[in-house]
Design a protein around this nucleic acid. Structure first.
Length: 440
RNA sequence: GCCCGGGUGGUGUAGCCCGGCCUAUCAUGCGGGCCUGUCGAGCCCGCGACUCGGGUUCAAAUCCCGACCCGGGCGCCA
């Protein structure tokens, strides 16, 4: 790694890089004061950086008086730079400690802190989110985002290997695209515009453009006033669209992707999983597939009946999850319960080639084979009570050679939530946006 | 949006049902003191709080009404 700041000739080490080879050598440590344990003539400063902790030990008689004095007075969470000698010490946590010759307070932290980074006293999620930068200093919280990083990298790697091209579509759009969800209106010079609810229409247009396989990882915005542990008003969606592939084809991509993410997280994030005390089992593919009819049958037997054609209620999904606690697909949904672009079966048009990927009761993804015929699409838009005129640029792409195609959208925040069994989706989002939260 | 539960020092809590003994508990933190092997350091001293507005009452953290905020469930959400 490039040493970005060359403050001294002494090499900077992360706390987890210190080992036998460093014993007796001089190193530079940069980080935050996690705790100070002052024994009078002997002071322990626990220094924390991105990768962990190291004990800086200051015996009064073995360090410079000003260094000793500074360490004794330093506040928790102050930023410090320590230059010192590594010593193997069985009594030190981790087996190594650093005896400082320099102890610089680069920036003193105010006291008291708005929340306890050392986690001796818990803080409520709301308090934590109000002071998120401090909350994020907790190793357990940071672990979530290190795993999130790994997850997204895994998704990119996998999709690239499968021949998908990463694209970026606009988030500011002109029309209330697909119906259904509420949109956030914004002003766009003299025009009215909206924040996009999904890249759906654009990724389909890219099928018309002949890119054949695309994916996008980007934000989606939904102005629904939902107030649950699994909904956000700004979320990150992982979307794919693929040409000359049916719904079953993209389901296979999806289940393989999910299993690949688990593999990569297990392999590369052992340390962070340990910090979180999470043990992962890589889910086996293929995932179980049940039809919509079978799903509502299970719910019905457990006392929650869903009229055919309706969406499956949360209560019903929780009952189904009792039978299917892990990953499974619900396939063959009623056409009227899905958006206009889902392809109905030729022989049974009331059912469409669509699917939801579930993890227990949590919906992770939904997708379908799309209608690729212009006339059929216009007909469905009308049937759904919308006006084809408002779909100008989208519909045009279907007139001049649109291949058959399928795709899905997978909620990145939900995927992380399901992997780490987070109780609240906000835990896995740096700065969540919900019905009430716009700051920070 | 609806239903339930809640709002007490910087943080997390006890007290509320059954109003007065609350000058409000405990922990952590913060300030000061002692201490050379801590690892949730220990010991001693100190600091710091009843969400806001109305009402009932001799008396309100406690009961009632309203507002705001939070948590959970549901709804909404392809």
């Amino acid at each position: 790694m490039i040493q970005i700041t060359q403050v001294t000739d002494v090499v900077r080490k992360y706390t987890d890089e210190i080992g036998e080879e460093d014993v007796g050598k001089k190193i530079r440590l940069c980080g935050w004061v996690h705790e100070v344990r002052d024994h009078g003539g002997l002071v322990f400063v626990i220094l924390r950086d991105r990768e962990g902790f190291i004990q800086v030990t200051l015996p009064k008689k073995k360090v410079k008086p000003e260094v000793f004095k500074r360490a004794k007075k330093v506040h928790r969470e102050s930023v410090v730079e320590v230059i010192g000698t590594v010593k193997a010490e069985p009594k030190a946590p981790g087996g190594y400690e650093v005896i400082p010759e320099e102890f610089k307070v680069l920036n003193e932290a105010d006291a008291p802190l708005p929340l306890d980074v050392a986690e001796k006293v818990p803080a409520e999620l709301d308090t934590r989110l109000d002071h998120r930068f401090l909350d994020l200093r907790k190793p357990r919280v940071q672990a979530i985002f290190r795993i999130r990083h790994c997850m997204l990298q895994s998704v990119r790697n996998f999709l690239c290997e499968e021949g998908f091209i990463e694209v970026n579509t606009p988030k500011i759009v002109s029309t209330a695209t697909e119906g259904g969800t509420e949109l956030f209106p914004i002003s766009y010079f003299e025009k009215e515009a909206f924040l996009n609810q999904s890249p759906q229409l654009y990724k389909q247009v890219l099928m018309g453009a002949g890119l054949e396989r695309v994916f996008e990882i980007g934000p989606i915005f939904r102005a629904e006033e939902h107030n649950t542990v699994r909904h956000l008003n700004e979320a990150i969606s992982i979307d794919i669209e693929a040409s000359f592939v049916d719904h079953e084809g993209v389901m296979r991509v999806l289940e393989k992707l999910v299993s690949r993410v688990y593999e990569d997280v297990c392999e590369k994030c052992e340390k962070y999983l340990n910090w979180l005390d999470v043990k992962l089992d890589v889910p086996e593919v293929p995932f179980e597939r049940i039809s919509y009819d079978e799903a509502i049958e299970i719910a019905s037997k457990k006392g929650e009946s869903i009229p055919w054609g309706e969406d499956i209620s949360t209560t019903a999904l929780k009952l189904i999850a009792e039978e299917l606690p892990e990953h499974y697909f619900i396939v063959d949904w009623p056409t009227k319960s899905k958006p206009f672009y889902a392809m109905p079966y030729e022989d049974k048009p009331e059912v469409c080639k669509s699917f939801d990927l579930m993890c227990g009761y949590l919906e992770l993804a939904s997708g379908a084979q799309r209608i690729h015929f212009y006339d059929k699409l216009v007909e469905r838009i009308r049937e759904c009570g919308m006006s084809p005129e408002s779909f100008g640029f989208y519909l045009e792409a279907f007139k001049y050679g649109m291949p058959p195609h399928s795709g899905w959208g997978l909620g990145a925040d939900r995927l992380l939530m399901s992997i780490l069994k987070l109780k609240n989706i906000r835990e896995g989002v740096l700065f969540p946006r919900d019905r009430n939260r716009l700051i920070p």
